[in-house]
Simulated assay, not measured.
Amino acid sequence: MSNSHQPIVVFGATGQQGGSVAKALLSAGWPVRAMVRDVTSAKATALCDAGAELVQGSYADSDAIRAAMRGAHGVFSVQQSSPSGQVTDEEEVRFGKAIADLAVECGVTHLVYSSGAAVSDKPTGMGHFDSKMRIEAHVRSLPIKATIIRPVAFIDMLVMPGFGLDEGRFNFFMQPDQSIQLLAVEDIGKFVEPIFADPDRFGGQTFDIASDEVTGKELEALFSEAAGRPIPYARFSDEVLAASPFLAKLTALMDEGPLAGRADLEALRKINPEMQSVRDWLGHTGRDAFLQALGTAGTWAYDRT
């Protein structure tokens, strides 16, 4: 049961994860306070129209964060990471720790921190994963009921430019027979809302969240079905990996296991019975984005090396 009086503070509410969480919380009847940089932006206005209370501020604005957390039941914490080009790894760590510290200071009952599926207690050698490992460790050290979720790779990422769909093919991290777990961004909030609704059950837990698991060959079949023509799948070529250290490191994490995902899909289905498969996503939420990707050339936005 949601607490109809005490709000949930949602960071990143105009972005992917925070936006999904704010939508799910509002749908379930929670009061939502959204931290936004610009209360006049189109996304912020849409949030306000949907029923969210807006608090203007940034991750570096401790006074605004304190004001947002005053009287709050919970906090959903997510930060941008360095591949976005907007923050450094050190800034991500500083912001993540500060939000957790302020949640304790303000007497928040339940903190939900969104990390990443490749994260564990061992460094990966990739800054934007290891930054989250450091934030996780800090959260666990604090006197607050906390849940750490580790989202796997987003299904939505598959239709970003640079993976070959505009050329009638698809290239990604796994070998054709390797499987990877994927998550529809829309489903993130549908996992987080039940976590806030039952803090005694989920407090103290850390777990991956995903909504499907597919192999490269299965993606080939799904994309071909959705496109109405063959979309062959292959792993990134050796030439592509040699030219992009960033992609090469991620591909190595696929082979080593962390990037593949370790979510218990059956257990997650009990939390969110509506979680979307890749086929579901291609037929509904992601249909327009997929069709647009078939005709949109470009390079992968996160490939900055």
Rank of each mutant, 00 (worst) to 15 (best):
M1L: 14
H5N: 14
Q6N: 12
P7V: 09
I8C: 06
V10N: 07
V10R: 05
F11N: 06
T14F: 02
G15I: 07
G15T: 08
Q17M: 11
A22D: 06
L25P: 10
L26Q: 05
L26P: 03
G29N: 08
W30Y: 13
V32F: 11
V32R: 01
V36L: 07
D38W: 05
A42L: 08
K43V: 04
T45I: 13
D49S: 14
A52Q: 10
E53C: 09
L54F: 02
V55T: 10
Q56G: 10
S58P: 03
S62Y: 04
R66V: 11
A67Q: 14
R70S: 15
A72G: 03
G74F: 01
S77Q: 04
Q79T: 14
S82D: 12
P83T: 04
G85C: 08
G85Y: 04
T88P: 09
E90Q: 15
E92I: 10
E105K: 12
C106A: 15
Y113N: 13
S114L: 05
S115Y: 08
G116K: 00
G116P: 00
A118L: 08
V119P: 06
S120E: 04
D121R: 02
G125E: 12
G127R: 09
G127L: 11
F129R: 08
E136V: 11
H138C: 14
H138Y: 14
R140F: 05
P143C: 07
I144C: 11
I149R: 00
I149D: 02
I149N: 03
I149M: 05
R150C: 10
R150K: 14
P151R: 00
P151Q: 02
V152R: 03
M160H: 05
M160N: 09
P161C: 11
G162L: 12
G162W: 06
G164I: 02
G164C: 08
E167Y: 01
G168Y: 05
G168D: 07
M174S: 13
M174Y: 10
P176D: 02
Q178T: 00
Q178L: 00
S179G: 13
Q181A: 04
V185E: 11
V185W: 07
D187S: 07
I188V: 14
I188T: 03
P194T: 02
I195G: 01
F196H: 03
P199H: 02
F207N: 04
I209Q: 00
S211Q: 01
V214L: 03
K217P: 03
E218I: 00
E218R: 07
E220D: 08
A226N: 08
G228S: 09
F236Q: 03
F236R: 06
E239A: 15
S244R: 11
A248V: 04
L250G: 11
T251I: 01
D255C: 05
D255I: 00
D255W: 06
G257W: 12
L259A: 15
L265Y: 05
E266F: 06
A267T: 07
N272C: 06
N272E: 02
M275P: 01
R279F: 09
G283A: 07
H284K: 15
T285K: 12
T285D: 14
D288G: 11
L291Y: 10
Q292I: 12
Q292Y: 13
G295F: 05
T296N: 04
G298P: 05
T299M: 13
R304W: 08
